[in-house]
Amino acid sequence: MSIRHGLLALLDQGPRYGYQLRTEFEARTGATWPLNVGQVYTTLGRLERDGLVAPHGEDEEGHVYYAVTDAGRTELRSWFDSPVLRTTPPRDELAIKLAMAVTVPGVDVTGVVQGQRRHSMKALQDYTRLKGQAIAADAGRQEDLAWLLVLEQLIFQTEAEIRWLDHCESRLVQRAAEPPEPPGATEAPAKPKRRRSLL
Rank of each mutant, 00 (worst) to 15 (best):
residue 49 R to A: 15
residue 50 D to W: 09
residue 51 G to W: 07
residue 52 L to P: 02
residue 52 L to A: 04
residue 53 V to G: 02
residue 55 P to D: 02
residue 55 P to F: 05
residue 56 H to I: 00
residue 57 G to N: 04
residue 60 E to Q: 14
residue 61 E to N: 13
residue 64 V to F: 05
residue 64 V to M: 12
residue 66 Y to H: 13
residue 69 T to Q: 03
residue 70 D to W: 09
residue 70 D to L: 14
residue 72 G to P: 03
residue 75 E to H: 07
residue 76 L to P: 06
residue 77 R to S: 13
residue 77 R to G: 04
residue 79 W to L: 08
residue 80 F to M: 12
residue 80 F to C: 10
residue 81 D to L: 03
residue 84 V to F: 12
residue 85 L to M: 11
residue 86 R to K: 11
residue 87 T to D: 14
residue 87 T to G: 10
residue 87 T to H: 12
residue 91 R to G: 00
residue 92 D to W: 09
residue 93 E to H: 09
residue 97 K to A: 14
residue 98 L to V: 09
residue 98 L to E: 04
residue 100 M to L: 15
residue 100 M to V: 11
residue 101 A to M: 01
residue 103 T to L: 15
residue 104 V to R: 10
residue 105 P to T: 07
residue 105 P to R: 04
residue 106 G to E: 06
residue 107 V to Y: 01
residue 108 D to H: 03
residue 108 D to N: 11
residue 112 V to P: 00
residue 113 V to D: 05
residue 114 Q to Y: 02
residue 114 Q to S: 09
residue 114 Q to V: 12
residue 119 H to R: 13
residue 119 H to N: 05
residue 122 K to S: 12
residue 123 A to L: 15
residue 123 A to F: 11
residue 124 L to E: 09
residue 124 L to W: 07
residue 125 Q to R: 13
residue 127 Y to K: 01
residue 130 L to C: 06
residue 133 Q to T: 04
residue 133 Q to C: 02
residue 133 Q to E: 15
residue 134 A to F: 01
residue 138 D to V: 07
residue 139 A to I: 00
residue 140 G to S: 00
residue 140 G to Q: 01
residue 141 R to Y: 10
